[in-house]
Every structure is written in structure tokens, then in C-alpha cells.
Amino acid sequence: MPCGGARIDLFLAAIVIGITNGAFIALIALGYTLVYGIIELINFSHGDLFMLGTFACLTTLTLLGFATEVGIGGTPWWALLAAMLLAMAFCGTLNVLAERIAYRPLRKAPRLAPLISAIGVSFIYVNLGLLWQGPTPRRFPDLLPQYDFVSQMFGLETLVRFTFKDLFVLGLAIPLMLALAWVIRNTRMGKAMRAVAQDSEMASQMGIDVNRVISFTFLLGGILAGAAGLMYGLYNNNTVFTLGFDAGLKAFTAAVLGGIGNVSGAALGGFVLGLLSAIVITFLGGQWDSVGVFSLLVIILVFKPTGLLGQGASD
């Protein structure tokens, strides 16, 4: 086992990996928390929606002719942009449709009914994924520049890597989260979302069309999942139809950790979870990943049952 300086190396390396992974988790966690904040539904299909997002990107890139080559002739930015926009539109639309078909008719039913319905939607998505890309893991084209800032720009010989891929993920995820926060805080629709989250009956008496606001919320969650799909694919260069289960579980945990229904909480929870997971994997090994993550969840919920930042979508 390495000691002294090497350990700090390892630790810093884990931090970078953790932050980048935290960004994916946060984007997916936002989808859980937005929906929970508005209609108190745990949308179990959300992780699988993210999986379909990676597939939508993969198919788009394949159709555009970028399925195999590895960074030859530079990065096709336009194709990446096209894939991301398509995945965002696809996941957003799918999420809105799921709400219309599977959740809205059950809105006045007991809580358990829409939850079971969401699990059903999750099964549909998983099987759709299985039909779409088959049962084995698929390679996702490696289209981003291969560049490590730590060794190539600063000439440092360490285990720590901060690559262009990390920059790409953070450079997309963080502005997306800030944009979401801005939409919720400042736009007419965002304010309507907050009003519906706090008291939907009273919101309707303000003239707010509650159904439209709920659709819009599902749209936002789906868009973020679609964007996360592209980032995940380009970062990890693989995807598989079972991807959504693990991602969904982690993201849901992150949302609860931060305070379900709380938007800043979901983002914070995502990063905390990503960091913890990377540190546990680095120092204890991959088999301890889930143990670490869920121990943290239990500990935090014992001492602060409403999560780190408290429940409620009021901000």
C-alpha cells in the first residue's frame, strides 16, 4: 500500500473523479427532486430515462457517422451538440408523456398507486433499452480530445488527472444547474412551479394551470437526464440497458441526502455522494461503494431526517 505523498496523490485523484461523477448524479437527482417537490411522487423510472438518454446520443452519433473513430480529425462538436439536443428533447418528451399517461390519471389515488405505476414505467424503459441496443454493454464513441491538464499543461508527474473530459462534464453540468436555478427563481413558469409546490389548490386560484406546470416540471427533469446521458457516454465510453438502475438509485439517494424536493439540496447531495463514492472506491475498493454511500445516507437521516438542506421546493 502506498504511503505518505502517494496517499495525498490518490486522495486528490479521487476528489476529481468524485466531483465529475457527482455532476452526473446531481443532474439526475434534480429530476427526482423537481418531481417530488411538485407532486410528491418518487419517479422510479427516472434513472432508466437517463439510460435511454445515453442510447439516444449513441444512436444519433452512429447515424451521423461517428460510431467508431477515436478522436480522428478532431472532435465533431456539431455532432455532439446535435446528439445532446436530441437526447434532451427525447427524454423531456418521454417524461412528459409518462406523466400524462401513467401518473396523471392516478393523481387523486392513494400514494402507492402512482409509485407502482412509476415502477411499471421503469420496466417499460428497461425493456425498450434492451430492444434498442441489445443485452450486452455498448461502446460509446470516444470523441473528446485526449488531454490531461495536470501532466500535459503543468508537466506534473502525479496520479492526479484533470482531463478535458472532466472539464467537459463540469463545464456543461454546472451551467445547466445554474440555468435551472435561474428558471425556477426568475421566470413566470418557475414562480408558478414554486407556487404549485407549496399549495397547488391555491396556485390554481391564482389562475395557474396546475397540469401545465406539472408537465413543465417533467420536461425540465427529462431535459437534464438527456444532457446527463451525453456526458456520461462521452466520459465513460460505454453504456448498457441496466445502467439506469444503479444511476437512479444513487441519484435518488443524493436527492434524499440533500433534502428531497429541495433543488439546491439535490445538487449538493449529488456532489457529496460522488465524492464519497470515489474516496471509498479508491481507498477501500469497489465492493465497499454501496456500503459507504448508504451508510452515509443512514447516518445523515438519523441526525437530520429532512436531509442536509431540508425538504421543500420553496427556493
Binding site: R188, K191, R194, A195, M202, M206, I208
Partner: peptide, 25 residues
Amino acid sequence: AHSPEGRRIFAGMTVRENLEMGAFT
């Protein structure tokens, strides 16, 4: 317009935002 029993203001929003919601339409 209805000012309901128990007031039911939007507690997490500012005074300004509550009035804005009143003028939503």
C-alpha cells in the same frame, strides 16, 4: 378572486412574489 380561510399565502415566497402570483393572469 378568493382570499381563503387560513390565508394560505405562499410561505416560501417573498411578499412581492405572492403579489405577483395574484396578478398571474
